[in-house]
């Protein structure tokens, strides 16, 4: 058990931190939602009712979609884009999808390679892109949820202000939808750019996200 925890500590710790943050968001969001209801002269709602509200759903989904977009772009664009000196980049001469021999696929598969890496045709094609595909799919689903829940939350506010609700299609053109979307995208894109650039010059000893402390600034594609 202890061995299992140690060998999976990265995923487990982040999973627990995620749940703690989500619980914290639920309580803070509930208090904020009730503040708004009170100021509009309406009755407060229970935590359970808030957790099934569009307001909570859109606040969660708008952050999720941007995170998965970030990883989708990072995973796929780093196939072709490189950054000299960054451990987040592959070597400058390895741009592209790389030869089968380097990727251990098809006839170059090893004994312990996943079955679909040994396969040919669509299975190899899907598996070769599965990380990006799943990240992209979760991004699209999260963005869809954001749009649907966002329309409902927006319309609830519209009704509170004695204004007409708008259909989902019209909401996609509303400033509220794009403000929620772009404010998350900009922060994720800044974080990726910062990581790619700062890791050229700065080090974190022992971290695989950093180059070894003594590596030269122009050493590319080396992780510590």
């Amino acid at each position: 058990m202890r061995r299992f925890l140690r060998q999976n500590s990265l995923g487990l710790v982040f999973g627990v931190l995620f749940l703690l943050a989500l619980v914290g968001q639920a309580f803070a969001g509930h208090a904020d939602y009730n503040d708004q209801l009170r100021s509009d002269g309406l009755a407060e709602v229970s935590l359970g009712r808030y957790l099934t509200s569009a307001s909570f759903a859109v606040d969660v989904a708008e952050n999720w979609q941007s995170e998965y977009l970030q990883f989708f772009l990072f995973v796929t664009l780093t196939v072709w884009l490189v950054q000299r000196g960054s451990p987040e980049s592959k070597p400058l001469d390895a741009v592209g999808r790389e030869p089968d021999a380097d990727q251990h696929v098809g006839e170059h598969a090893r004994a312990d390679s996943p079955a679909w890496a040994r396969a040919r045709g669509w299975r190899l094609g899907v598996y070769s892109n599965s990380l990006g595909l799943v990240m992209g799919l979760i991004f699209l689903l999260s963005w869809l949820v954001q749009s649907v829940a966002g329309a409902a939350a927006y319309n609830e506010e519209q009704l509170r202000r004695l204004q007409d609700p708008v259909p989902w299609g019209a909401y996609l053109l509303e400033a509220d939808f794009w403000n929620r979307t772009l404010q998350n995208w900009q922060s994720e894109l800044l974080a990726v750019a910062s990581m790619a650039i700062l890791s050229i010059y700065l080090r974190q000893r022992g971290s695989p996200e950093s180059k070894p402390v003594g590596s030269a600034h122009d050493t590319t594609g080396v992780e510590g």
């Binding site: 999973g15 995620f18 957790l51 099934t52 509200s53 569009a54 759903a57 859109v58 969660v60 989904a61 999720w64 979760i138 689903l141 999260s142 869809l144 949820v145 954001q146 649907v148 829940a149 329309a151 409902a152 939350a153 989902w168």
Partner: peptide
Amino acid sequence: MTRRLLLAVAACGLAATAGCAH
């Protein structure tokens, strides 16, 4: 686990369009 939660929130988000209860 994350995907399951995503789907749960997605389902609720879709349901929330109409108030999440009947």
